[in-house]
Design a binder for these strands. Structure first.
Ligand SMILES: [Mn+2]
Ligand SMILES: [Mn+2]
Ligand SMILES: [Zn+2]
Ligand SMILES: [Zn+2]
Lengths: 138, 138
DNA sequence: CAAATAATTGCAACAATGTTGCTATTTTTG
DNA sequence: CAAAAATAGCAACATTGTTGCAATTATTTG
């Protein structure tokens, strides 16, 4: 029935107003959200600390993943399927659009195989592309 | 003769104590530096604001490049050759070592070609790998 | 369902990081 | 070396992130 409650329950998180509202925001939003986006979008009577803590536990549980950036503005987006507590498996590429400024998960674009010289042990790879998204390019 | 002075002069930056000291730090360091590393490494009597402004102008001139991260701790590393005012051409992969915590430019590992669906226009791609570096892995 | 227990929230206080305007100092130019 | 231009340091402020704790809310238990 209630999608949001289920997601929280399945991840052994108690169902609170804050978590529901933030998760709802992610489900309603195309593109990734920064902490500040949530602060604005989640209504006034929301403590910043709660948002930090909620984002942290969502990441920990594998509900959302963090997308790196080179300008101190981490964004977060919903994980798809197989992510769970402790292990993320988001093998897709991200796009930061220079026109609409959105950060998008391109689920259909898979992180390529990169050959490292002998001696390195690679755990995972993040790919962030800068460019123009489909919508803005037409 | 003086390598550091030349770099600054070639980039039309006046040669000041601050810039020399920060550039020296980069030249002496294996791995990328965060703002805080520079704050510690550059001596006490150094204004934080000067470091911010120096890093910004170095990036702008193509002397250093910023390396994205998912934990709000941008690092900077020296650019190699062809970077100049306005255009960076750092087509290498970065590695964040989970043991020594260093962020390394792997100049010999080139950013792979990624196929995007039609409609996107890609300007550049950042690749950051997490794993264990050669030194820590032996 | 109500009480007991467990978990989360908001608050306050604080630390760390980043920005801006202005003046004094330093660097470059001629 | 003097004049002009650029930079550094300072102060004040804004933004972002962290921690401890008491009050509130959610879950479990009987
Ligand atoms: Mn994603
Ligand atoms: Mn690099
Ligand atoms: Zn766009
Ligand atoms: Zn290492």
């Amino acid at each position: 029935m209630n999608n949001i409650q289920n997601i929280l329950r399945n991840n052994k998180l108690s169902v609170t107003e804050g978590r529901k509202k933030i998760l709802q925001l992610f489900l309603n939003t195309e593109g990734a959200l920064a902490h500040s986006d949530i602060e604005k979008g989640a209504g006034e009577n929301f403590d910043r600390v709660t948002i930090y803590r909620t984002l942290h536990s969502f990441v920990e549980k594998g509900i959302i993943h963090a997308i790196p950036s080179a300008d101190n503005s981490i964004k977060y987006a919903l994980c798809k399927d197989e992510c769970g507590e402790g292990h993320h498996h988001d093998h897709h590429v991200h796009l930061v659009c220079s026109v609409c400024q959105k950060t998008l998960c391109l689920d259909e674009v898979v992180v390529p195989i990169v050959n490292f010289p002998a001696g390195y042990c690679i755990k995972n790879i993040e790919v962030v592309a800068n460019g123009i998204c489909k919508q803005c390019n037409s």
